[in-house]
Simulated scan of single mutants.
Amino acid sequence: MALNILFAGRPDRWDEYRPTLSRAFQEAGLDAVIRDDLPPAEVDYIVYAPNGPVQDFTPYTRAKAVLSLWAGVEKVVGNKTLTMPLTRMVDHGLAQGMREWVTGHVLRHHLGMDRDILNREARWEPVVPPLAEERKVTVLGLGALGRICAETLASLGFDVTGWSRAQKQIDGIRCLAGEDGLQEALTGAEIVVLLLPFTSETENVINAQTLDLMAKGAVIINPGRGPLIDDEALLSALDSGQISHATLDVFRVEPLPQDHPYWAHPRVTVTPHIAAETRARTSSEVIAENVRRNEAGEPMLFLVDRDAGY
Protein backbone atom coordinates (compact mmCIF):
# COMPACT_ATOMS: atom_id res chain seq x y z
CA MET A 1 0.00 0.00 0.00
CA ALA A 2 1.37 3.37 -1.02
CA LEU A 3 2.37 5.91 1.61
CA ASN A 4 0.55 9.25 1.50
CA ILE A 5 2.99 12.16 1.71
CA LEU A 6 1.59 15.67 2.15
CA PHE A 7 3.67 18.60 0.94
CA ALA A 8 2.86 21.38 3.41
CA GLY A 9 5.59 23.81 2.46
CA ARG A 10 5.07 27.20 0.89
CA PRO A 11 2.54 26.72 -1.93
CA ASP A 12 4.64 28.53 -4.54
CA ARG A 13 7.43 25.95 -4.05
CA TRP A 14 5.25 22.91 -4.79
CA ASP A 15 6.10 22.86 -8.49
CA GLU A 16 9.79 22.87 -7.58
CA TYR A 17 9.48 20.10 -4.99
CA ARG A 18 7.06 17.82 -6.84
CA PRO A 19 9.65 16.25 -9.20
CA THR A 20 12.50 16.15 -6.68
CA LEU A 21 10.40 14.45 -3.99
CA SER A 22 9.00 11.97 -6.50
CA ARG A 23 12.48 11.06 -7.71
CA ALA A 24 13.91 10.80 -4.18
CA PHE A 25 11.13 8.46 -3.02
CA GLN A 26 11.57 6.29 -6.10
CA GLU A 27 15.33 6.07 -5.53
CA ALA A 28 14.67 5.14 -1.89
CA GLY A 29 12.48 2.26 -3.09
CA LEU A 30 9.32 3.69 -1.55
CA ASP A 31 5.85 3.52 -3.09
CA ALA A 32 4.40 6.93 -2.30
CA VAL A 33 1.63 9.30 -3.34
CA ILE A 34 3.00 12.83 -2.94
CA ARG A 35 0.51 15.66 -3.15
CA ASP A 36 -0.20 19.09 -1.67
CA ASP A 37 -3.92 18.50 -1.12
CA LEU A 38 -4.38 15.16 0.65
CA PRO A 39 -7.25 14.71 3.14
CA PRO A 40 -5.71 15.11 6.64
CA ALA A 41 -6.97 11.76 7.96
CA GLU A 42 -5.19 9.92 5.11
CA VAL A 43 -1.73 11.49 5.53
CA ASP A 44 1.17 9.28 6.64
CA TYR A 45 3.95 11.90 6.63
CA ILE A 46 3.95 15.71 6.46
CA VAL A 47 6.71 17.53 4.58
CA TYR A 48 6.49 20.80 6.43
CA ALA A 49 7.64 24.42 6.47
CA PRO A 50 6.53 26.95 9.12
CA ASN A 51 5.45 29.39 6.39
CA GLY A 52 3.25 26.74 4.78
CA PRO A 53 -0.50 26.17 5.16
CA VAL A 54 -0.50 23.70 8.08
CA GLN A 55 -0.51 25.19 11.57
CA ASP A 56 -2.94 22.83 13.32
CA PHE A 57 -1.79 19.20 13.28
CA THR A 58 -4.83 17.85 15.14
CA PRO A 59 -6.63 16.51 12.01
CA TYR A 60 -3.59 14.44 10.96
CA THR A 61 -4.50 11.47 13.11
CA ARG A 62 -2.58 8.91 11.00
CA ALA A 63 0.60 10.93 10.50
CA LYS A 64 3.76 9.20 11.71
CA ALA A 65 6.10 12.19 11.60
CA VAL A 66 6.46 15.82 10.56
CA LEU A 67 9.57 16.36 8.41
CA SER A 68 10.59 20.01 8.42
CA LEU A 69 12.30 21.61 5.45
CA TRP A 70 13.89 24.21 7.74
CA ALA A 71 16.99 23.87 9.88
CA GLY A 72 15.41 26.02 12.58
CA VAL A 73 12.37 24.70 14.42
CA GLU A 74 11.72 27.49 16.91
CA LYS A 75 8.53 28.46 15.06
CA VAL A 76 6.99 24.98 15.45
CA VAL A 77 8.62 23.20 18.39
CA GLY A 78 6.18 24.77 20.85
CA ASN A 79 3.06 23.92 18.80
CA LYS A 80 0.94 21.90 21.23
CA THR A 81 -1.03 20.27 18.38
CA LEU A 82 2.17 18.65 17.09
CA THR A 83 2.41 15.42 19.08
CA MET A 84 4.10 13.15 16.53
CA PRO A 85 7.91 13.05 15.99
CA LEU A 86 9.47 16.13 14.37
CA THR A 87 12.69 16.23 12.37
CA ARG A 88 14.64 19.26 11.25
CA MET A 89 16.51 19.72 7.98
CA VAL A 90 20.22 19.08 7.78
CA ASP A 91 21.34 18.23 4.28
CA HIS A 92 24.29 18.56 1.94
CA GLY A 93 22.91 21.60 0.13
CA LEU A 94 22.14 23.47 3.34
CA ALA A 95 25.56 22.70 4.83
CA GLN A 96 27.46 23.50 1.64
CA GLY A 97 25.59 26.77 1.16
CA MET A 98 26.32 27.84 4.73
CA ARG A 99 29.98 26.86 4.45
CA GLU A 100 30.40 28.93 1.28
CA TRP A 101 28.61 31.99 2.69
CA VAL A 102 30.44 31.96 6.01
CA THR A 103 33.85 31.30 4.46
CA GLY A 104 33.35 34.05 1.91
CA HIS A 105 32.46 36.67 4.50
CA VAL A 106 35.16 35.61 6.95
CA LEU A 107 37.75 35.96 4.16
CA ARG A 108 36.20 39.27 3.11
CA HIS A 109 36.67 40.75 6.57
CA HIS A 110 40.00 39.03 7.22
CA LEU A 111 41.49 40.43 4.03
CA GLY A 112 39.84 43.85 4.38
CA MET A 113 38.33 43.54 0.93
CA ASP A 114 35.73 46.27 1.49
CA ARG A 115 38.51 48.81 1.90
CA ASP A 116 39.67 48.28 -1.69
CA ILE A 117 36.30 47.52 -3.26
CA LEU A 118 34.82 50.75 -1.91
CA ASN A 119 37.89 52.88 -2.60
CA ARG A 120 36.61 55.58 -4.96
CA GLU A 121 39.07 58.33 -3.95
CA ALA A 122 42.14 56.90 -5.68
CA ARG A 123 43.95 56.39 -2.35
CA TRP A 124 47.12 54.29 -2.60
CA GLU A 125 47.34 52.95 0.93
CA PRO A 126 48.77 49.41 1.00
CA VAL A 127 47.43 47.50 4.01
CA VAL A 128 48.75 43.96 4.28
CA PRO A 129 46.44 41.65 6.25
CA PRO A 130 47.79 39.19 8.80
CA LEU A 131 48.02 35.54 7.90
CA ALA A 132 44.99 33.42 8.69
CA GLU A 133 46.92 31.67 11.47
CA GLU A 134 47.22 35.07 13.18
CA ARG A 135 43.47 35.75 13.07
CA LYS A 136 41.33 34.59 15.97
CA VAL A 137 37.95 33.33 14.75
CA THR A 138 35.24 32.09 17.13
CA VAL A 139 32.27 30.04 15.96
CA LEU A 140 29.35 29.96 18.40
CA GLY A 141 27.38 26.79 17.77
CA LEU A 142 28.96 23.48 16.79
CA GLY A 143 25.99 21.62 15.38
CA ALA A 144 26.11 20.26 11.84
CA LEU A 145 26.38 23.71 10.23
CA GLY A 146 28.70 25.25 12.83
CA ARG A 147 30.99 22.27 12.72
CA ILE A 148 31.44 22.27 8.95
CA CYS A 149 32.13 26.01 8.97
CA ALA A 150 34.63 25.74 11.83
CA GLU A 151 36.43 22.85 10.12
CA THR A 152 36.60 24.72 6.81
CA LEU A 153 38.02 27.86 8.45
CA ALA A 154 40.57 25.79 10.36
CA SER A 155 41.60 24.08 7.11
CA LEU A 156 42.42 27.54 5.73
CA GLY A 157 44.73 28.15 8.65
CA PHE A 158 42.56 30.33 10.90
CA ASP A 159 42.99 30.09 14.67
CA VAL A 160 39.50 28.71 15.34
CA THR A 161 37.72 28.36 18.66
CA GLY A 162 34.29 26.78 18.81
CA TRP A 163 31.71 27.07 21.57
CA SER A 164 28.59 25.05 22.23
CA ARG A 165 26.35 24.53 25.23
CA ALA A 166 27.39 20.86 25.45
CA GLN A 167 31.05 19.92 25.17
CA LYS A 168 32.17 18.82 21.70
CA GLN A 169 35.40 17.31 20.38
CA ILE A 170 36.49 18.31 16.87
CA ASP A 171 39.98 17.71 15.51
CA GLY A 172 41.84 20.96 14.91
CA ILE A 173 39.29 23.10 16.79
CA ARG A 174 39.60 24.35 20.36
CA CYS A 175 36.17 23.42 21.69
CA LEU A 176 34.71 25.13 24.75
CA ALA A 177 31.39 24.86 26.55
CA GLY A 178 29.40 26.39 29.39
CA GLU A 179 29.23 29.97 30.65
CA ASP A 180 32.93 30.19 31.47
CA GLY A 181 33.75 28.67 28.11
CA LEU A 182 31.64 31.30 26.34
CA GLN A 183 33.59 34.12 27.96
CA GLU A 184 36.87 32.43 27.07
CA ALA A 185 35.76 31.83 23.48
CA LEU A 186 34.83 35.48 22.98
CA THR A 187 37.75 37.08 24.82
CA GLY A 188 40.02 38.59 22.19
CA ALA A 189 38.03 37.15 19.27
CA GLU A 190 38.50 39.14 16.07
CA ILE A 191 35.78 37.52 13.94
CA VAL A 192 32.74 35.92 15.57
CA VAL A 193 30.37 33.69 13.58
CA LEU A 194 26.94 32.97 15.10
CA LEU A 195 25.46 29.56 14.28
CA LEU A 196 23.51 28.76 17.44
CA PRO A 197 19.86 27.70 17.47
CA PHE A 198 17.41 30.20 18.95
CA THR A 199 16.25 29.17 22.41
CA SER A 200 15.53 31.01 25.65
CA GLU A 201 19.14 30.26 26.65
CA THR A 202 20.75 31.67 23.50
CA GLU A 203 18.63 34.81 23.05
CA ASN A 204 20.85 37.93 23.26
CA VAL A 205 24.00 35.84 23.66
CA ILE A 206 25.63 38.80 21.90
CA ASN A 207 25.03 41.68 24.29
CA ALA A 208 26.88 44.64 25.81
CA GLN A 209 28.93 42.41 28.10
CA THR A 210 29.93 39.80 25.52
CA LEU A 211 30.69 42.46 22.89
CA ASP A 212 33.17 44.07 25.29
CA LEU A 213 35.05 40.77 25.59
CA MET A 214 35.97 40.79 21.89
CA ALA A 215 39.05 42.40 20.41
CA LYS A 216 38.73 46.11 19.65
CA GLY A 217 37.43 46.38 16.08
CA ALA A 218 36.08 42.82 15.95
CA VAL A 219 33.60 41.68 13.30
CA ILE A 220 30.25 39.96 13.88
CA ILE A 221 28.88 37.58 11.23
CA ASN A 222 25.37 36.25 11.88
CA PRO A 223 23.82 33.67 9.54
CA GLY A 224 22.22 31.85 12.50
CA ARG A 225 19.22 33.48 14.18
CA GLY A 226 18.29 37.15 14.57
CA PRO A 227 17.44 37.01 18.30
CA LEU A 228 20.96 35.85 19.15
CA ILE A 229 21.90 39.54 19.06
CA ASP A 230 20.81 42.40 21.30
CA ASP A 231 20.36 44.88 18.45
CA GLU A 232 20.69 48.02 20.58
CA ALA A 233 23.90 46.74 22.15
CA LEU A 234 25.37 45.90 18.74
CA LEU A 235 24.48 49.31 17.31
CA SER A 236 26.13 50.99 20.30
CA ALA A 237 29.27 48.87 19.88
CA LEU A 238 29.38 49.72 16.17
CA ASP A 239 29.08 53.43 16.94
CA SER A 240 31.88 53.28 19.52
CA GLY A 241 34.20 51.29 17.25
CA GLN A 242 34.36 48.29 19.58
CA ILE A 243 32.85 46.37 16.66
CA SER A 244 34.15 47.48 13.27
CA HIS A 245 31.52 45.74 11.15
CA ALA A 246 28.53 43.41 11.34
CA THR A 247 27.43 41.25 8.43
CA LEU A 248 23.91 40.08 9.22
CA ASP A 249 21.76 37.61 7.30
CA VAL A 250 19.00 37.02 9.87
CA PHE A 251 16.86 39.36 11.96
CA ARG A 252 14.16 39.39 14.63
CA VAL A 253 11.66 40.66 12.06
CA GLU A 254 11.93 39.56 8.43
CA PRO A 255 11.92 41.12 5.95
CA LEU A 256 13.99 43.67 7.87
CA PRO A 257 11.80 46.83 8.15
CA GLN A 258 12.94 49.62 5.83
CA ASP A 259 13.32 52.05 8.72
CA HIS A 260 15.56 49.72 10.75
CA PRO A 261 18.91 51.36 11.67
CA TYR A 262 20.86 48.44 10.21
CA TRP A 263 19.98 49.49 6.65
CA ALA A 264 21.62 52.90 6.90
CA HIS A 265 24.51 52.08 9.22
CA PRO A 266 27.85 52.38 7.40
CA ARG A 267 29.33 49.49 9.37
CA VAL A 268 26.55 46.99 8.72
CA THR A 269 26.05 44.70 5.75
CA VAL A 270 22.53 43.31 5.39
CA THR A 271 21.92 40.17 3.33
CA PRO A 272 18.32 38.91 2.90
CA HIS A 273 18.42 35.54 4.70
CA ILE A 274 20.29 33.78 1.91
CA ALA A 275 23.20 32.17 3.75
CA ALA A 276 21.77 28.65 3.67
CA GLU A 277 18.62 28.17 1.66
CA THR A 278 17.01 24.73 1.61
CA ARG A 279 17.53 23.24 -1.86
CA ALA A 280 14.72 21.09 -3.23
CA ARG A 281 16.95 18.32 -4.63
CA THR A 282 19.13 17.70 -1.59
CA SER A 283 16.39 18.22 1.00
CA SER A 284 14.08 15.81 -0.84
CA GLU A 285 16.75 13.13 -0.50
CA VAL A 286 16.85 13.63 3.28
CA ILE A 287 13.04 13.54 3.51
CA ALA A 288 12.86 10.27 1.58
CA GLU A 289 15.66 8.72 3.63
CA ASN A 290 13.90 9.60 6.89
CA VAL A 291 10.65 8.03 5.68
CA ARG A 292 12.57 4.93 4.58
CA ARG A 293 14.24 4.72 7.99
CA ASN A 294 11.00 5.09 9.91
CA GLU A 295 9.20 2.51 7.78
CA ALA A 296 12.11 0.09 8.34
CA GLY A 297 12.06 0.63 12.10
CA GLU A 298 15.36 2.52 12.05
CA PRO A 299 15.95 5.81 13.95
CA MET A 300 15.21 8.90 11.90
CA LEU A 301 17.89 11.50 11.25
CA PHE A 302 17.87 14.92 12.95
CA LEU A 303 15.05 14.16 15.35
CA VAL A 304 14.14 17.25 17.36
CA ASP A 305 14.53 17.21 21.15
CA ARG A 306 11.42 19.12 22.25
CA ASP A 307 12.87 19.92 25.68
CA ALA A 308 16.10 21.34 24.25
CA GLY A 309 14.20 23.19 21.52
CA TYR A 310 16.23 21.91 18.56
Rank of each mutant, 00 (worst) to 15 (best):
216 K>N: 14
61 T>I: 15
181 G>D: 05
265 H>V: 10
14 W>N: 00
209 Q>T: 12
241 G>T: 10
152 T>I: 00
151 E>C: 04
265 H>G: 08
274 I>C: 13
104 G>K: 07
178 G>M: 12
257 P>A: 11
231 D>V: 13
219 V>W: 02
45 Y>G: 05
267 R>F: 00
288 A>N: 07
61 T>N: 01
144 A>L: 00
293 R>K: 13
254 E>V: 09
301 L>Y: 08
213 L>F: 09
301 L>N: 13
113 M>Q: 12
269 T>C: 07
216 K>H: 14
147 R>H: 03
125 E>N: 14
132 A>H: 14
247 T>W: 10
74 E>R: 04
77 V>C: 02
246 A>Q: 02
280 A>M: 09
17 Y>K: 02
41 A>Y: 01
13 R>N: 10
82 L>I: 10
133 E>C: 12
124 W>Q: 11
97 G>V: 05
30 L>V: 15
55 Q>L: 06
37 D>M: 01
79 N>P: 03
280 A>H: 09
114 D>K: 06
263 W>S: 03
105 H>Q: 10
48 Y>M: 01
305 D>P: 07
62 R>A: 15
290 N>K: 06
157 G>P: 08
124 W>G: 01
153 L>M: 11
284 S>G: 09
65 A>M: 15
135 R>E: 11
89 M>K: 02
82 L>G: 02
199 T>Y: 08
80 K>P: 03
231 D>P: 00
261 P>F: 07
